[in-house]
């Protein structure tokens, strides 16, 4: 039993779920209260982008999907919507990282910021596709800009957190 529990804990996606839950509590509490320029900061999308930055596009897509699914559980949007969008964000962040010759901290910041902003633009588009009305307007760009800027600040620690969570089990041992 304990052996199985340890095996589960060693799984990198299980660790990502636990990290995701922690960040989700911060998202629904402190980042829900702190709204610079009236915009709710989105650290969940940053986590999805960081998964891609830390471990590449494939792991980023799966990690983004898991994080999006967690976020879907507390939102009123259709289940799977954030999962799909965050999977794209994680994938794009991973692809972007692979295109950089020698990644540095500031390139990660830039990529995390851009991926977050893309996520904030894709989310209302996806909502509109699923039937929501009136949310696709110029305000989306403002939200994307603010979220991108603030996520740039937080992207380095988020990327380190994801790098740790998504480490291969052998490396952990």
């Amino acid at each position: 039993m304990i052996e199985r529990l340890l095996l589960f804990a060693e799984n990198r996606y299980a660790r990502l779920v636990l990290v995701g839950l922690m960040v989700l509590t911060l998202q629904t509490t402190v980042f829900n209260d702190v709204r610079p320029f009236g915009v709710c900061l989105q650290v969940m999308v940053l986590l999805a982008a960081s998964a891609g930055l830390a471990r590449g596009s494939d792991v980023g897509a799966i990690g983004g999907f898991i994080i999006g699914l967690l976020y879907d559980l507390v939102l009123t949007t259709p289940m799977g919507l954030c999962a799909a969008v965050f999977a794209i964000v994680g994938y794009l962040a991973g692809v972007g990282q692979s295109l950089v010759y020698a990644p540095t901290w500031w390139t990660r910041m830039l990529l995390g910021s851009i991926a977050s902003a893309i996520g904030m633009i894709l989310l209302p588009i996806a909502s509109t596709v699923t039937g929501a009305t009136g949310i696709l307007n110029a305000h989306v760009l403002f939200v994307a800009l603010i979220v991108g800027l603030f996520n740039a600040v937080l992207s380095v620690p988020a990327e380190r957190l994801c790098r740790w969570a998504l480490t291969e089990p052998a490396a952990v041992r």
């Binding site: 799966i62 999907f65 699914l69 879907d72 289940m79 799977g80 919507l81 999962a83 039937g131």
Partner: peptide, 13 residues
């Protein structure tokens, strides 16, 4: 991942 998302969205809607 895409299929799972579509199925989940459809089920929820």
């Amino acid at each position: 991942l895409s299929l799972t998302s579509v199925i989940l969205i459809t089920m929820d809607l």
